[in-house]
Amino acid sequence: MHRLAMVGVILVLLLGAAVPGFAQEDEPGTIAEVITAAADEGQFTILLAAVQAADPSVLEKLSDTEADITVFAPTDDAFNAVGEDELNAILENQELLTSILLYHVMEGAVGSADIADMDGEAVTTLQGTPIELRIDEDKVLVNSAEVVTPDIAASNGVIHAIDTVLMPPAEPVAEATEEAPAAGNTIADVVTASAQGDEPEFTMLLTAVQAASPDVLEQLSDPNAQLTVFAPTDEAFNALKESLGDEAFQALLDDEGKLTDTLLYHVVNGKVLVADITAAFESEENVDALVAQTLLTGNTLLITKDEEGNYYVNGAQIVTTDIEAANGVIHVIEAVITLPEAE
């Protein structure tokens, strides 16, 4: 425990001193004022825009002189890594934006040295769901986001700049329990049966699942899970193969890590039927897109709708909807959703 605490202290000294733009006055302002001042210097500009676009309660909390909170503040690079379309959709959806911002805030001012002593703890955020604080060698992590500038002081708490936007887990529409396990075929069973049927489909998806990390098959086979899978057809995989070329496509299948990430990028936590998607579009006026957090941590999908009422996931049209399984639902898509390019 003492070794971890020392790591935290070293990070404060090295990272805090190495990053310009966050010099602290003797008497810093509130977290809202610190973020505003940093934005004037070219830091936290998107975070400030997000706070201003969210429910006013977010700004009120960050401005509360009586508060004592910790904010994990994504850098501008972190927001830009979300992708332009996805980011715009989030900024235009006040309810979702507010939820995401509150997922970055916890009660109590927790410095980096304190986080070192909380290694592995799950802490509830103001959004209501927990984040995990961890130490990985010389890194302070919040879920999978790394703290890049710790201990930015404020009069009502502390700010830690992070390199990834934290996305709260989706709320499952239905949830199986250990006391009442789901019966019938799981998503893995449905995919396998389809691939082995008289008119085979999902043969290449099944091959990919079997070549990926065993964790993928375990999640799709878990009777207590509730998932939504956007499943590419064999034709979709063949189109990707033609686009990449035989050698590059085989390299993808041979790269377990990248293949696993690609498959997890097609899976959303919670059972989301097409009726749920329709209801979400109809719940507010002028909704252009929905954002869904995938099982690939920190990565989202953008669901859009055309004038004819067709739905698309990152541009891939959903061609068959609501193939239900004991642990979720499958929507068939006409293209493989490729991973976002690294910034």
Rank of each mutant, 00 (worst) to 15 (best):
residue 115 I to A: 07
residue 342 A to Y: 14
residue 284 E to F: 13
residue 275 A to M: 15
residue 247 E to Y: 11
residue 122 A to T: 15
residue 71 V to N: 08
residue 46 I to N: 06
residue 196 Q to H: 06
residue 328 G to V: 05
residue 113 A to C: 00
residue 338 T to Q: 13
residue 12 V to N: 15
residue 190 V to Y: 01
residue 5 A to I: 11
residue 26 D to P: 07
residue 291 V to I: 13
residue 93 N to Y: 09
residue 283 S to D: 14
residue 137 E to Y: 04
residue 296 L to G: 07
residue 315 G to N: 03
residue 275 A to G: 15
residue 59 L to Q: 14
residue 14 L to N: 12
residue 140 V to Q: 00
residue 136 D to Q: 12
residue 179 E to T: 11
residue 26 D to C: 04
residue 342 A to L: 15
residue 204 M to N: 01
residue 102 L to Y: 08
residue 160 H to L: 01
residue 107 E to Y: 02
residue 247 E to D: 14
residue 186 T to I: 05
residue 187 I to K: 02
residue 90 I to D: 02
residue 151 D to G: 06
residue 113 A to S: 03
residue 174 A to F: 10
residue 211 A to L: 11
residue 103 Y to E: 00
residue 266 H to I: 01
residue 54 A to V: 10
residue 109 A to S: 14
residue 109 A to Y: 00
residue 209 V to P: 07
residue 241 K to E: 14
residue 211 A to V: 05
residue 108 G to A: 04
residue 298 G to V: 09
residue 250 Q to A: 15
residue 270 G to V: 07
residue 243 S to I: 03
residue 279 A to K: 13
residue 174 A to Y: 05
residue 343 E to G: 15
residue 121 E to R: 14
residue 86 E to Y: 10
residue 175 E to M: 14
residue 300 T to H: 01
residue 82 V to C: 03
residue 21 G to L: 08
residue 304 T to F: 04
residue 268 V to D: 00
residue 335 A to Y: 05
residue 298 G to K: 03
residue 7 V to L: 11
residue 274 V to Q: 12
residue 250 Q to H: 10
residue 329 V to Q: 05
residue 187 I to Q: 01
residue 311 Y to N: 06
residue 136 D to G: 04
residue 183 A to I: 14
residue 264 L to V: 06
residue 86 E to D: 13
residue 104 H to N: 02
residue 292 A to M: 11
residue 10 I to W: 12
residue 233 T to S: 13
residue 163 D to A: 10
residue 271 K to W: 09
residue 49 A to V: 07
residue 99 S to W: 01
residue 152 I to D: 05
residue 123 V to N: 05
